[in-house]
């Protein structure tokens, strides 16, 4: 077991070292690259902690999407003439606040670890009740059955983020993306082989998600990766206005949730009580599509997308 602790210590050291460099570095671009690596190490930590659901989401979002988002935003800033200023405010408060908040987190953590575990804790309850839901993956069970309302509200947050981004979007400037050169045949080869594969993995994660790690969030994140790939290579181009299909896809997840969740009321069942496994699949599919479209639009910083015509 000592080898396991050694791995833990190395991962922890990498996390602390990387975050220190990200925060105190002096070149913004380099620090963004380090932040991407930070996401990779976090994903490794999830794998090590035995949470493959989180590792999947982090691999797609933390390591891939967030980094790509930041790099693209940075690109726009540089294009707009922003300087890569290493600007740093001198503050007498900063160091004490950092040290104290870190210490506070540690104290709370140790206090929480000291609390004796009661048998009726939420996690064990979930595992006890899980067989009754027809699902095999406890995380999916929590997301859709036990805490469905939270997940629905999460979809609302995603929608609000997109609407907010649309609101601050410049009028006549559907994000000018700088596309990757396509004169190299390798990029086309990459697209033709990788994008079907991402679709396949997304569907696999969605279907497998009821019983093994995976689910709507992970599948949506993978699909977003595919969308971002298509936007980056110019296969999908930012459009000025959102089409009807786009709008429908954006609200699909929330709509499915509301209809099925509130529809339970009409049949005299508790709100958000799902009528069966088919409802889980329906909601998950809708959520996956909504997440993927919303995130891809957030990435492209546009109201819609249209396929390039050649």
């Amino acid at each position: 077991m000592s080898v396991g602790v050694l791995v833990d210590v190395m991962l922890a050291l990498a996390l602390v070292g990387l975050s220190l460099r990200v925060v105190t570095g002096r070149a913004l671009f380099r620090d963004m690259v380090l932040f991407i690596l930070f996401g990779l190490v976090i994903s490794l930590s999830w794998s090590r902690l035995g949470a493959p659901d989180l590792a999947l989401a982090e691999a797609a979002i933390g390591a891939g999407l967030t980094g790509a988002l930041m790099l693209m935003a940075y690109r726009r800033l540089v294009e707009g003439g922003a300087e890569d200023s290493p600007g740093r405010r001198r503050s007498f408060l900063a160091l004490p606040v950092g040290v104290l908040s870190g210490a506070l987190v540690a104290v709370i953590g140790f206090a929480a670890l000291g609390v004796e575990r009661v048998p009726g804790a939420a996690g064990t309850l979930v595992l006890e009740e899980l067989p009754g839901t027809g699902l095999g993956n406890a995380v999916t069970g929590v997301l859709l059955v036990f805490r469905g309302l939270d997940t629905m509200l999460e979809m609302t947050v995603l929608l609000v983020a997109l609407l907010g981004a649309w609101a601050v979007l410049g009028e006549a400037r559907p994000g000018r993306l700088h596309q990757v050169d396509r004169d190299t045949p390798l990029v086309a080869a990459l697209l033709t082989s990788v994008s079907p594969l991402t679709l396949l993995i997304a569907v696999h994660l969605l279907l497998a998600g009821t019983d093994s790690p995976g689910g709507a969030f992970q599948a949506g994140a993978v699909l977003t990766g595919c969308g971002v790939l298509l936007v980056l290579t110019g296969t999908l181009r930012p459009a000025v206005a959102a089409g009807l299909v786009t709008k429908l896809l954006v609200i699909a997840g929330l709509t499915a949730f509301v209809l099925i969740g509130a529809g339970a009321l009409a049949f005299g069942r508790p709100t958000m009580a799902l009528p069966g496994t088919w409802a889980v699949y329906l909601i998950e599919t809708a959520m996956m599509l909504s997440i993927a479209v919303t995130m891809t639009l957030l990435f492209a910083r546009s109201r819609g997308l249209y396929p390039e015509r050649r």
């Binding site: 390798l186 080869a189 990459l190 082989s193 990788v194």
Partner: peptide
């Protein structure tokens, strides 16, 4: 897939 991704990435970075 790793082979494909690595070759394309390496090619793009080299260019």
């Amino acid at each position: 897939v790793g082979l494909l991704a690595a070759s394309v990435s390496a090619h793009l970075i080299a260019r």
